[in-house]
Simulated scan of single mutants.
Amino acid sequence: MMNQYFIRARLFPTILTSIPIIIFINYVLNKEIYPSLDQIYTILPTLTGFGISAAIIFLSIQINRIVSKELFQKIYFKEEIEMPTTKMLLWKDSKLDKNTKSKIRQKINKDFQIKLKNEIEEVSDLEESKKQIVFAVSQIRNLLRGNAFLFQHNLEYGFIRNLIGGSSMASLISAIILIYAILTKDNTLEITSIILLTIYILPIIFSKFIINKFGNYYAKTLYEQFLTEK
């Protein structure tokens, strides 16, 4: 499962968002800085090109993960306090009916000996209620670690989150390429960079909506699978 997660939720979005930086290094820098290294590229063209691109993708995987988790997820969800898995179990949230919430809370108490706050207690201490739910959700995730259906939704959420993180870096590099193309009057590169910038900026503009949408899908699946767990 970890190999599948790495490939589908980390590697694939990184490959999709690495196009601008690969163009920047293999075209822009190659044109401006690498002429002095022409001999190396003549001797080892395949090795240098493939090696640099592979190194970029590997580095981008780490950067995208950090950006997506530490920037977008932290801004939108404040760690896990505001995540759909937390909010959905609050009494004031309407995404789940109260009967279902009661069943989930009873099972949490039974399985993990965690007694979540009732409606009155939740109103008087909302932040503590959220922290309790966050801890309970971590226990549910551990319990359902091998659940294939939940894993599929986790893959989808991870892919989208990392795609948005990668798009922020891709947009920045595309903008740099665009500036370079305008300054050097490279029309082909200018059109390419405009297209790339447009493609990568869209996930950022709609990032909150997209992350929330997939987060809600994951949260509903988590609780559905938890209730069916014996």
Rank of each mutant, 00 (worst) to 15 (best):
E32F: 12
L16I: 09
L189M: 06
D93A: 06
F226T: 00
Y218V: 03
T228W: 05
F6W: 04
I66Q: 09
I22H: 04
L89P: 06
K110M: 07
T198E: 05
A175H: 08
E122W: 05
T192N: 13
I66R: 03
F151L: 07
S168G: 09
F72G: 04
I191V: 15
D97S: 03
F77T: 00
S94E: 13
K98Q: 12
F50A: 12
S193F: 11
N118S: 08
E80V: 06
L11D: 03
P203Y: 08
I160F: 01
D38G: 14
Y223Q: 02
L89H: 00
L47V: 13
F50W: 12
I199F: 03
F12V: 03
I164R: 03
M83N: 12
I23E: 10
S53D: 10
M83Y: 14
I211V: 10
E82F: 14
Y27Q: 07
G165K: 01
F24P: 07
L197A: 10
D111T: 08
I56W: 05
E122C: 04
R105C: 08
F151M: 05
G166N: 02
G51N: 02
F206T: 13
E80M: 08
L29A: 03
Q106R: 12
I191P: 08
T42H: 13
N142W: 07
E79F: 10
F151R: 01
G158I: 02
S129G: 05
S18Y: 03
I22T: 07
Q132C: 07
P203D: 02
E224R: 11
L96G: 00
N216D: 14
E229Q: 14
L172W: 09
N154V: 06
A148Y: 11
L197G: 07
E121M: 02
D125N: 15
K130Y: 07
L59W: 08
L59Y: 10
R141Q: 14
T85S: 09
F58G: 10
V123S: 11
L116E: 01
